Every structure is written in structure tokens, then in C-alpha cells.
Measured scan of single mutants.
Amino acid sequence: HITLTNLITEETTHVVMKTDAEFVCERTLKYFLGIAGGKWVVSYFWVTQSIKERKMLNEHDFEVRGDVVNGRNHQGPKRARESQDRKIFRGLEICCYGPFTNMPTDQLEWMVQLCGASVVKELSSFTLGTGVHPIVVVQPDAWTEDNGFHAIGQMCEAPVVTREWVLDSVALYQCQELDTYLIPQIPHSHY
């Protein structure tokens, strides 16, 4: 019994991606959610070859190996599938703050939850000092008015990073160091 759908849910078992011959794909929301959820992320060749051979072929032979941004053979989907007991964002409290493009905020929040993070909706909701690490995620190029994202640091004691930190961490299924993704914050004294 196979159901085809464009939506990823808890029940989804396989995410089928358009890939090149070496099982490398573009980074899409579907790709990120498939990895975050520990699903099989496979090339569409799995479907076409299975139909051709009239049997369901082994997914291992068709698993996506990499993507056009993070590298052609990083094995993120395999790492995620085999590490669902070791979520990459466990112990983190993440607030997805401000506008985002090409990806609804609720989907970004679901993605970080699938990776083990707790989501907070407001900067004031962080449970500071409880052994949980707060992180604010923003997408600077989605902000149309002044660079308000440079002043988020005044509203909460949390590192502010770009959305790329989430996307790179999920694609590779390895929590990336914050340093290269940090957004400089204007210190309090400048006000």
C-alpha cells in the first residue's frame, strides 16, 4: 500500500527527490524536513527503477548522498536516519524571529523540533538559566525595514544566528558551530 502526497507528515516514510546520477539534489523544504524527520530521502531513480523491475528495490542503493550547497557526498540523510536517538538540537531552545522567505515560519519551527529543539514563540519566553541553551534564528535578507535584527541582543541574552545555521546543520545532520553564522549585535551602550 503506497500513498503519494506532496505533504510531509509524521506518517511519511520516504521523501523522493529529483537528483543527478550521483544522487545529489537541490536543497528544498521537503529535503530538510525529510532529513530532520529521519525519513528515507531517496532519488526518484528509486521509483523509476522499482517500476521498471516491478519490485520495490532497496532504498540504500538510492539514498540521497549530498546536495548542491553542502557538498556532493556528506551523507546527511543517512546520518539522520541512523541517529534518531541522538537529535542534533537536543538541549537547545530556538526562537525563529522575524520574517522568513521561501519557507513558512511554522515549517522552520517544525524542522528544529524534529531535530530535538524546544521552540519558543517570543524572545521573552526563553527559560534562561535552566541548562537549556537559547538561540535566536533570523533571516536578515528578509527584513525590509531597518536592520532591527542587529538589536535583538538587547531583548534577550541569546546568540543570534542566520537561518543558514539551521539549514546547514539539518542538511549535514551535524549541529554546526555558531561562530560563522552569528549576527553582530549592537551593544547596549549605543542607545
Rank of each mutant, 00 (worst) to 15 (best):
L92S: 06
F32S: 01
G131N: 06
I183V: 15
N70C: 15
K52N: 11
W46N: 00
K39W: 06
E177R: 12
S125C: 15
D61A: 15
V119Q: 11
Q113P: 01
H190V: 02
M17G: 00
P159A: 14
W46P: 02
L92M: 10
L7D: 13
N70S: 14
W165T: 03
T3P: 12
T144M: 13
R79K: 08
K18S: 14
D106K: 07
P187W: 12
S118L: 11
M111N: 00
Q84S: 14
E82I: 14
P99Q: 03
Q49T: 13
E164Y: 07
K121V: 15
P140Q: 14
V68K: 10
P159S: 12
N6R: 11
K121P: 05
E11G: 08
E22V: 08
E93L: 08
I2A: 10
T130N: 13
Q185E: 03
E10A: 10
Y31A: 00
V166S: 03
T105P: 12
L4C: 14
C96T: 07
T127R: 10
H190A: 04
S43T: 00
N6L: 14
V42Y: 00
M111K: 02
T12F: 05
C95P: 00
W143V: 05
Q185Y: 04
R86S: 10
W165R: 01
E53R: 00
L182R: 10
S43Y: 05
F23M: 10
I51F: 10
S83N: 02
P184S: 12
G91C: 14
L7G: 04
L123N: 12
I2R: 06
G38L: 08
M56T: 05
K121W: 07
A142T: 15
H188S: 10
G98R: 04
V69S: 05
V120F: 04
G98W: 04
M103P: 02
V64N: 00
G131T: 05
H150R: 06
F23L: 06
I186G: 11
L33R: 05
V137L: 06
I152L: 15
M155V: 10
E11K: 08
G34I: 01
T3V: 04
H74A: 02
Q185T: 07
Q49N: 09
P140L: 14
H14S: 01
A158V: 04
E59Q: 08
L92W: 04
W40E: 00
I186M: 08
E59F: 10
D141I: 08
L114W: 01
Q154P: 08
H190G: 12
Q185D: 02
T12G: 01
K87D: 12
I88A: 06
F100I: 03
C156F: 12
I152P: 12
I2Y: 07
L4S: 04
G153V: 13
W110M: 13
L114P: 03
K39T: 07
Y97H: 15
E145Q: 11
Y44P: 01
F62V: 03
G34T: 02
V120A: 06
C95L: 12
P134R: 13
G116F: 14
M56P: 06
E177G: 15
V160Q: 14
P104L: 13
Y181Q: 02
R90Q: 04
W165V: 02
I8P: 12
A21F: 10
Q139T: 08
Y181W: 03
D85T: 10
P104R: 06
P104H: 15
Q185W: 11
G153Q: 08
R79S: 04
G98S: 09
H188P: 09
H133R: 15
Q185V: 06
I186V: 07
G116S: 11
T101S: 13
E122D: 14
L114M: 10
Q154L: 08
D20R: 02
Q84R: 10
V47N: 01
V68Q: 06
L167S: 03
Q139E: 15
S169I: 02
L123T: 14
R27L: 02
V132I: 09
P184T: 06
T9E: 13
C25R: 01
D67G: 00
F62L: 02
N6S: 15
V132A: 14
E22A: 12
Y191L: 08
Q139L: 05
D141K: 08
K18I: 04
F100M: 15
E53S: 10
A151T: 11
E145A: 09
Q176E: 13
F89N: 00
A171S: 14
L33E: 04
L178E: 01
E122W: 05
T162R: 09
